[in-house]
């Protein structure tokens, strides 16, 4: 990045950027520096994110909150390496993700990110165990070890007795726990949950949030994207997004 661009950055970000330019890799787990995401809508350019910078340390439990259209989903896609920023640097676990190609991104998603979706997104015809094994298959792990790891992951979400069940034989909460086991099976750097309780009733939501809390206490880094304030309130830090910018970044616990 040129000096001219540096001059236009906010002071704090510029300092951190300078460190990055000076070949010092960020020490934090996630380091976003002046991230822009621009979409071309016809002839018009729409900035979904304009200049977002923040850091996440290992072991944090963060909620990203914001109304629809705030750029929250775009940010989540970037954090999850499903997309790359139009401008800016994103360091994840010491790797600069912002300039990676498709296959490298797939590898990062496989190794560093565990996704949990609102609608679970399990393979309908596959057993719980096979669903959990899927990331390991793409990670190139042999079947014996894969089996072992998937069984462990299901045990960690208290589903040892549902290993051979298919999604349609499981309750919503159980399905989400299978999805969480799938997200955790590769021991990723971050667990990235997109409205994880959006399709669940209050009771089951509480169960899942309790599980998140437990996983956090076991040392996992968790990022929950939500628009529900009581879900966000379970996190230890809340990033509020509005109009493509971080409006508020507050530690609450």
């Amino acid at each position: 990045m040129s000096d001219v661009t540096l001059a236009t950055l906010p002071i704090e970000a510029a300092l951190q950027q300078a460190q990055v330019n000076g070949q010092h890799r960020p020490t934090s787990l996630i380091s976003m520096r002046d991230i822009w995401k621009t979409y071309q809508m016809g002839t018009e350019e729409v900035h979904a994110l304009h200049g977002v910078s923040f850091d996440v340390n290992k072991g944090e439990y963060i909620a990203i909150i914001g109304p629809s259209g705030s750029g929250k989903s775009t940010l989540m896609n970037l954090i999850g390496c499903l997309d790359t920023p139009s401008k800016g640097d994103y360091w994840l676990n010491g790797k600069n993700v912002s300039e990676m190609d498709d296959d490298e991104l797939a590898r990062i998603r496989n190794q560093e990110v565990g996704f949990v979706f609102q609608t679970f997104n399990l393979l309908a015809r596959a057993t719980a165990l096979h669903n959990v094994e899927l990331p390991l298959i793409y990670g190139g792990i042999g079947s014996t070890q894969r089996h072992e790891m998937a069984t462990q992951a299901l045990k960690a979400v208290d589903l040892s007795d549902r290993v051979t069940h298919r999604p349609n034989e499981l309750s919503g909460g159980q399905r989400q726990r299978v999805a969480i086991a799938r997200a955790l099976v590769n021991h990723p750097s971050i667990l990235l949950a997109d409205e994880p309780t959006g399709a669940l009733d209050t009771h089951t939501s509480k169960e899942i949030m309790d599980l998140f809390e437990r996983l956090h206490s076991e040392g996992n880094t968790i990022i929950v994207v939500t628009h529900e304030h009581d879900i966000a309130a379970r996190a230890h830090r809340i990033l509020s997004i509005r109009d493509g910018l971080i409006e508020k970044d507050e530690k609450i616990k």
């Binding site: 499903l82 498709d102 296959d103 797939a106 996704f115 393979l123 899927l134 799938r182 590769n186």
Partner: peptide, 16 residues
Amino acid sequence: TREIGVRKAIGAKRSD
């Protein structure tokens, strides 16, 4: 399509 999206999200490469 959705299944493909999920597979990609959890690390499937294009070649996979």
